[in-house]
Design a protein around this nucleic acid. Structure first.
Lengths: 206, 206, 206, 206
DNA sequence: TATGAATGAGATTTCATTCAT
DNA sequence: GATGAATGAAATCTCATTCAT
């Protein structure tokens, strides 16, 4: 790679990071190219030197965020730990990623879900493959649960569905938290929902 | 004196139902007034005889859907049943509402979430109060769980958080199902996630 | 004329009178057909039973007002009086017509001027012939002034221009009064501007 | 860094001058954005690079015309002259401004009056403050008349009303001239109406 | 005759993208 | 490479007029 190329890549990253913050704050839909240019401190036309279109910026922003989260999830999985501990850590990683890039980061998740789903059937034929992403994460959760079943620590449940459900609960709680941060205490959520999933609601006679 | 016999309220409902289908199929954001008119079999201008603006149609559509689901949830709550049975029924109601108006109904939920969140801070000051809606449903779940705790059937857990989590799991599973209907079997989900919540993942010594 | 026809004509007049009030209040341009129907207490469609188009209503309203004023001017002219007295009375008639139909009548004059001028070159080829109207009034003023010159009461001035100027001053003062009723006291105007004009027009004894 | 060398202020002026001509020719009300763009030789969208809205163009056009006339009136006032000469010059300035920007300039005056009056009570709360403008000009005329009274050249008349009346006559004559240029000879008007007014205002030696 | 629901032409405005400099 | 002026497609909304009842 020539130094020129490296520079270009660097500037593209800078624009992207700036774009992520704007997307989070104003919403993907309300963000104009002019906003991105202003935030990045460059001219409108310059954006097109680094990205082919408005959509491409969003896609790259999305991928950047997701790659980041996946990396951190994968790293956690690699550490040898009890399944129970691992599940708790994984959930924690997702919750903690809400502030990773911007205080309004959570809002951007909504945009990502929205765009990810709505663009599925669009003419672009799916700007974002959220389906694959979820499948990946689901399998990672499932693997941990299967470990627990193998070791006899967990019941013989449908591990795939359990994985989906834990993942679902995390997403859903984020949604509720966005709607009203006071309605859900994400801080304590991690511990409590894991207790719920691990022990269930019912009182077990011993 | 009044020769034209058109029940305006009825026609408005018809336009609304038609609009809901279009919104579900194309997405609120991608739906143009012209699409709504075409689908309803009327002229563009006629829409404005029944709705003040594009946004108003969306809001009324949302409220219509919402009122429908709330009605059914409330009806379920009123039936005297075991807490465990009640929880299952409530979850079932939400899942089954996915096909209520359109096959793509679930997609519309995403739009509702999206708009509900993104319009929060917008100039309109929140077209939709999703926060209140969730609080209402959360309390209904909580009430059932509290009943179970009272009767000794359930453990003494944080019932509010448990309610939030069940609600969250339902939403999250819907999200995953939309992303890939083959990845999550909503049909069996109801039974399985309730088993999960009720009994937990852990194996309990007896 | 059959009784039916008389009735129709009567109703048309009623609609017209009602329309004049609405035009005066809201301005011709801002008045919708629906407003006229509402004010007349009839249906929108019914308007078209009596008038071919929106423009026609305005034209007929205009003609109604103008015919009224002309009639009163002609009546004044017919009375045998000193030229000086006659001029004062004529000016007074115009000023007093401002409240004839509505408190906002004066505003309607502006609309009449505006439309009268702007429609001159339009495709309709002149909805209103204000030019002819002004010529008529001008000649009436001129005739009175010529009388005064003949009798030696007035100087030998350009009577046509003097007529135009008096007429102009009346219009112009109405304009100023509309812009700010406190800036011009129309009540005292009649006496004062006539003093102004007469002491210029009159031959002064030396 | 700034390759496009376009003086935005200059171009805005050019668009405005072009717009004034179109407004004058077609009337403010009949002028579409597309007309303005066509006349200026630019695209529809480009208009909005220089003006926020259609109304803003009109307001700026009006202010431009106004500022021009005021400047010339003020300049005239400043020259030390006999009150009689000054009055003649002032009137002349108004008459001569009719061709300043366009042959149809006079028509635009009608639009300005119309809009100025009709927008008074509108929702915009008065795009244009014609009332203040007239008050300013009135006071300038009054000042000259008062000078004449002071010096004994003029009779002790109500100078404010006299000022209003002269101003009114000028406006009214312009109106008549617009309606039919052959009906009023503006060229000779200046001399003749001043003769009329002066011989009324002046104290006559006996 | 009276009505008002239905209509669609037409106007304003936005903004992603292009391209001359 | 960087820029931002220019563009026009596209979307919303208005309202005079028509016409079935």
């Amino acid at each position: 790679m020539s130094p020129k190329k490296v520079d270009k890549e660097k500037k593209k990253q800078a624009i992207l990071m700036s774009a992520i913050r704007v997307f989070a704050e104003k919403g993907v839909h309300n963000t104009k190219i002019a906003d991105l240019a202003l935030a990045a401190g460059i001219g409108k036309g310059t954006i097109y030197e680094y990205f082919r279109s408005r959509d491409e910026i969003f896609i790259e922003a999305f991928n950047f965020i997701l790659r980041d989260m996946e990396t951190r999830l994968k790293a956690e999985i690699a550490i040898p730990e009890e399944p129970e501990t691992k599940l708790k850590s994984m959930t924690n990683i997702v919750f903690s990623s809400l502030d990773q890039f911007s205080g309004d980061m959570a809002n951007l998740f909504i945009d990502i879900w929205h765009e990810g789903i709505r663009s599925k059937s669009g003419p672009g034929g799916g700007l974002i493959d959220l389906g694959q992403l979820y499948e990946d994460i689901r399998l990672e959760y499932k693997q941990v649960i299967d470990e627990g079943i193998q070791s006899g620590e967990f019941r013989k449940i449908d591990s795939r569905m359990a994985a989906s459900t834990i993942l679902a609960a995390v997403d859903g709680l984020i949604l509720q938290w966005i709607l009203n941060p006071e309605a859900v205490d994400l801080h304590s959520a991690n511990v409590k929902i894991m207790d719920l999933f691990l022990n269930g609601i019912k009182r077990h006679e011993e």
